[in-house]
């Protein structure tokens, strides 16, 4: 039983070391930028903030044009501040471009994500 436990621990350790090595390599991120575009269905002006930076101001029913953003997965926070309302989405997509829509009919004031494509 003890031998089994030791063997299991060794195996787990080896497996874990292998996973760690692989994970370290996989942690590399490709160094191209991704893009997004925010489209508004509101009759108001909106500020578009990406990861805490003001990137565009769009007029009623306008769009932001193409905005470049980092390719780090899960790090792209897109916020639209439209007078009294704030719409938010954290984009975790790995595809190269996403459209996001400010749609007052969407519950919870999330930005509507999609389509995303390469």
């Amino acid at each position: 039983m003890v031998r089994f436990a030791i063997a299991s621990m060794l195996l787990l350790g080896l497996a874990s070391a292998g996973f760690t090595a692989r994970a370290a390599d996989d942690a590399d991120v490709e160094r191209g930028l991704h893009t997004l575009r925010v489209i508004s269905k509101l009759d108001r002006t909106c500020e578009i903030w990406v990861n805490g930076s003001l990137r565009a101001t769009i007029g009623p029913f306008g769009n932001s044009g193409i905005l470049a953003t980092t390719s780090s997965v899960g790090q792209t926070e897109v916020m639209a501040r439209c007078e009294n309302a704030v719409y938010l989405e954290v984009v975790t997509e790995t595809r190269r471009h996403c459209d996001l829509t400010i749609d007052p009919t969407v519950r919870g004031r999330d930005l509507l994500l999609g389509p995303c494509y390469d």
Binding site: R31, G32, L33, H34, T35, R37, G65, I66, L67, A68, R96, H97
Partner: peptide
């Protein structure tokens, strides 16, 4: 560029 933005 894509849409006039440098991406790579």
């Amino acid at each position: 560029t894509r849409g006039g933005m440098i991406t790579c």
